[in-house]
Computed example of a mutant assay.
Amino acid sequence: MTNLDPAVIAARFGPRADVGHLALTGEHGVVLPAFTDHHVHLDLFAEHALAARGIAGVVDLGGDPYALARRDPHAVPRPAYAGAFLTAPAGYPTGRSWAPDAIVRHVTDPSRHPGVAGGAATAVDEQIECGARVIKVALNAEAGPTPEPPIIEAIVAHAHDRGVPVVAHAQGTGMFARALDAGIDALAHTPFTEILDEADIARAVTAEQIWISTLDIHRDAPEHARTAETNLTRFHAAGGRTLYGTDLGNGDLPVGVDPREISALVAAGFDAAAVVAALADPWPFPDAVPGVCTFVPGRPPGDERDLGAWLATASTVPIDEISRDEP
């Protein structure tokens, strides 16, 4: 019997948190909903260790749609994906060493008629027919041309008609406003190139725009890190919905729960329950990864600043391998 108190754990980590032990080993710990990393690139890292290190679901935000379509949809980590980046001719990430032609589509026409070369509907339909659960638009004004507003609006409208949300990589002055004006559902990164004012934040929250955190990727870019933290602190305080995401595959990031990303969320004002909510949100799926949960061994730390190191010891385990502790 562990001295962890289920009521205290639920009060701190959210109503779905519990106390239990592994049936085979008897190891005690905290049982949490299955975790998802909402921003990865599966072709840029070895994913085999993710589940053992606490990640049960992933959202690939830029890859070859035909290669992604061949993935087992019932695997753990459960994959969701956007397919190719939709961008302007010569726009980001065209020409990057890590971005072969297969992961980029140039959209040149706002046409919503199927089969139009370079058309918005053509690009969206291709990704969805390959199984995409989200569409990604590249709005990186610091790295080349970006799609004009009529094209973005057509992409968003067509994706919404097909029941799929749209996420944008918004980078550079004015790109956040362009994404928000077009009805973009989610941002692939917390805005990091411009400080948003209170009106910007309020508009995003009112529009129910989702932000994917990706704070740790700025650890070697202090100005971007400060801007992202400032924006996310305001967004979170205003009631905005944030998802945990790391951009795994982009640089030296741990495969599994990233303790630095957790610590950055805490620095932005997230308590333990908010951190777990960001990790356990099943978006873009409506429901959690079936049949599994997150198990974190031992007692949680008393100080939220130590939360990242503790959560980084998590693993994904089948629900039926957990025995619940008696209160």
Rank of each mutant, 00 (worst) to 15 (best):
P145Y: 04
D271T: 02
A179Y: 06
W310T: 04
V255M: 09
P33Y: 09
V40H: 02
P150Q: 10
V266I: 10
G83C: 06
I322F: 08
R96C: 12
D161A: 15
P77I: 09
I195G: 00
P114G: 14
D200V: 08
V8R: 14
R219K: 12
R219A: 13
V205F: 09
I151H: 06
P254S: 10
L68I: 00
G239V: 10
G163N: 08
H158G: 02
G14H: 07
V58R: 05
V275S: 01
G91I: 03
R53M: 03
A138L: 07
A159R: 08
G240D: 06
L265W: 00
A82D: 05
R71Q: 13
I152L: 13
V116F: 05
Y81G: 05
V76N: 07
K136A: 01
D247S: 07
D271F: 03
E126I: 06
Q127S: 12
V166C: 04
V275W: 00
R234N: 11
V275Y: 01
A309I: 13
S315P: 00
R70F: 00
I151Q: 08
V266P: 00
Q127E: 14
P290N: 12
A75V: 02
D271A: 06
V275H: 01
P191F: 06
I184Y: 07
A168K: 03
A23K: 14
T242E: 04
A170W: 01
P73N: 11
F285L: 15
T108A: 10
A268S: 15
G63C: 05
T242H: 03
A88I: 08
D5W: 09
R219Y: 09
L243G: 11
P318S: 10
A82S: 15
I262G: 00
D125H: 10
P284W: 04
T294V: 10
G245Q: 06
H224D: 12
T25C: 03
P145S: 05
A82G: 14
E148S: 13
H160R: 12
T230W: 02
